[in-house]
Design a protein around this nucleic acid. Structure first.
Lengths: 304, 304
DNA sequence: CGGTCTTTTCCACTAGGCGGAAAAATTGGA
DNA sequence: TCCAATTTTTCCGCCTAGTGGAAAAGACCG
């Protein structure tokens, strides 16, 4: 027997002045209602409602318990509804990690619209370059180009594939010449993102032709913005996702090279912990991000 | 499944950091505890505790619900314990009705000691001469000389049998003479308590001799104190329970007559409503009164 | 890599709760 | 005063929900 049901029967009977009507409202038989009330009175060792077949009235103990237990029922209902509402309209804090570049170019511009939809949900973005220990770092969502190592507890969801580009400053190209073939890259200062898979081996294709070039890094870093800054200062030729440098290219401060050759795509993924009930905040954020990227993607930057 | 048990499992698990330990403390199997927690999470559509086989931690929803539901559990426990305590240490108001005489001579002197034992219980005494409608008048206990008419809802408990006495003022006796035989009473002014059974027919006995005398009432009333005041003013001979006039007799302001003749005893009863669980206040009051009368009874006034 | 420990799930069993109906009781109207 | 109507309580047979034990699954440490 559910103790809360016992109290509900008592409260409803006191309100309606009839066990039968309470039973009806609560969707149970008269017999069940009678038993629930009797069980409550036995548990409290007190008669809460004096009653005969014609009328009923609260005892003094019943009046006191009605006041206190009504309050308790209301508070519990509020608490349960509040928790339930969180599932439907998420609140609290969502901790996201991505590269600085992705944060600057995609997350930051996206957040105003996201926050307008979910004003009670705060988003904290940690710029980082490696997958975190989700639990230890308290991270809810990670956005990375690499795949997370196979893990039953982490779900990886593909965001999209991004094109990459080779580019250098005009000053560098004037000083060091424009590379005409992939093989020319071996004689150039290359700016390398060292967290990429096999970062010092470049594979370029043109139609059916494939060239694999081993490069040496005049500079390598785990941060795309550092790579970009180095390129802007004429330190060499960078290879990076187009989305990071498109603004520079449009501004003329970086010049793309070997444009007729294709570089391997970069797959961008969202990763989050596998949970029995995915918190609403993770669900709404990942759905929003996927939609945002889909809507704001040009075929220049994103492919399939 | 008891919903309160579900919450108790959740709260205890959060406190102890282990489902197994919560199960142990709450006296249930690990399987049962696991099911209770899962049922609560399903009911709220929210994960309250993230957990694996090594550790567990509260979600944000879980932290909020822990705070609120702990408070609710505490309040409910307080409420239930308060009601339970009432049964053991009664509080509130007890409504008693008795004759004015009985109230003045027995109840009022008794109350200080009773209240010392039960300081939280207030006693309200209504002087009245007839049995009330218990429910309508909100009366808990009635003390009366007459038997309540047979009623499954009213319990009648005997308090004791009281002696009665005939008495008049010295002035009246000097003026009208001292009655020597029961038959003499027909020529005297009698002061009659008209709520007695067959008040105008007196039955007196001396050993094996019985005399039945029909009297006429110079005055009759439903209040013993009025009868007593009339006697003190020389209006006639009264017949009343000895306890009412013993003080006057000892003071010499009333003189007993026909003392060698016995009058029928008066049975004093306590009546209260029959309830499935007798409220503690009725139980403690009636027990106290019975004991008080037993301890303060002289064989002059009370008999077996 | 295996052992230890915890959580979850499965399974067989049974205790408890159900609704319907009968019993008991109360009140009002004829 | 009696009977009908209505409510509360109790009984009974049925059924399912909840149980504990054990196995399965998983996590972490030595």
């Amino acid at each position: 027997m559910d103790r809360l049901t016992q109290i509900e029967v008592f409260v409803k009977t006191a309100e309606l002045g009839s066990l039968s009507r309470a039973a009806e409202v609560l969707g149970m038989s008269n017999a069940a209602a009678s038993r629930h009330l009797a069980a409550l009175e036995e548990r409290l060792s007190a008669r809460l409602i004096e009653r005969n077949t014609r009328r009923l009235w609260l005892t003094e103990a019943g009046q006191e318990f009605l006041q206190r237990s009504s309050a308790v029922l209301n508070e519990l209902t509020d608490a349960e509804e509040a928790i339930n509402a969180r599932t439907l309209s998420p609140t609290g804090l969502l901790r996201v990690t991505s590269s600085l570049s992705f944060a600057l170019i995609y997350l930051a511009p996206m957040l105003p619209a996201f926050r307008a939809l979910y004003p009670k949900l705060n988003v904290h973005i940690a710029a980082a370059n490696r997958y975190p220990d989700f639990i230890e770092a308290g991270i809810d969502v990670a956005i990375r180009t690499r795949l997370h190592e196979p893990d039953t507890n982490i779900i990886v969801r593909r965001l999209g594939r991004m094109r990459r580009v080779l580019a250098a400053s005009p000053a560098y190209l004037e000083r060091c010449g424009m590379p005409k073939e992939p093989a020319d890259l071996t004689r150039h200062d290359m700016l390398v993102y060292n967290l990429a898979a096999d970062p010092f081996s470049l594979r370029l294709t043109k139609g059916d032709i494939e060239r694999i070039v081993r490069i040496s890094g005049a500079l390598d870093s785990n941060d795309g913005q550092i790579i970009r800054e180095a390129a802007l200062h004429g330190l060499g030729i960078l290879i990076q996702p187009l989305y990071i440098v498109q603004g520079d290219i449009e501004a003329g401060t970086l010049v793309p090279v070997l444009l007729d050759w294709d570089l391997p795509m970069l797959t961008m993924n969202i990763a989050y912990q596998n949970r029995v009930q995915l918190p609403a905040k993770i669900r709404v954020f990942t759905d929003f991000l996927v939609n945002y990227v889909r809507k704001n993607s040009s075929s220049q930057i994103w492919a399939g």
